[in-house]
């Protein structure tokens, strides 16, 4: 698994970017979620993975003994997952409101505020 993780990450990144490049709003959000997975896995992988050894101190011990998984990236990813959800929810609601207000799913129809007037 350690050896195929890089390919998995690459695949997820490619899929996420591909979806974002399309003009559809729903695809944009799905793409963002996939990018979130990819980034979490990237962080997880580059800090090295350890199979089957969670960073839990055994009952009788007072500190961890090798091998054990690095707890720091886990703490980072844990909050990233939850915050990611908050942002996704916000984005999903935003699409809905945008769709109801502008009656469009096309990102190109929503860029008028981004353009300078001549």
């Amino acid at each position: 698994m350690e050896d195929i993780l890089p390919f998995l990450i690459g695949g997820l990144y490619a899929g996420g970017i591909y979806l974002i490049l399309h003009r559809s709003f729903v695809k944009l959000i799905i793409g963002l979620i996939i990018l979130g997975y990819a980034s979490n896995l990237l962080l997880f992988t580059i800090s090295r993975v350890t199979r089957g050894a969670p960073p839990l101190i055994p009952e009788e011990a007072s500190q961890l003994t090798e091998p054990f998984a690095d707890p720091l990236p886990q703490a980072l990813i844990l909050t990233a997952i939850v915050i990611g959800f908050g942002i996704q929810a916000f984005a999903i609601v935003l699409i809905k409101v945008g769709y109801q207000a502008g009656d469009t799913d096309d990102l190109d129809d929503l860029n008028t505020t981004d353009r300078l007037e001549d």
């Binding site: 969670p54 839990l56 844990l78 909050t79």
Partner: peptide, 12 residues
């Protein structure tokens, strides 16, 4: 605090 779990998971 001592085993898998915690505020985030509990809240969910």
């Amino acid at each position: 605090h001592n085993a898998p779990g915690g505020g985030f998971v509990g809240g969910l």
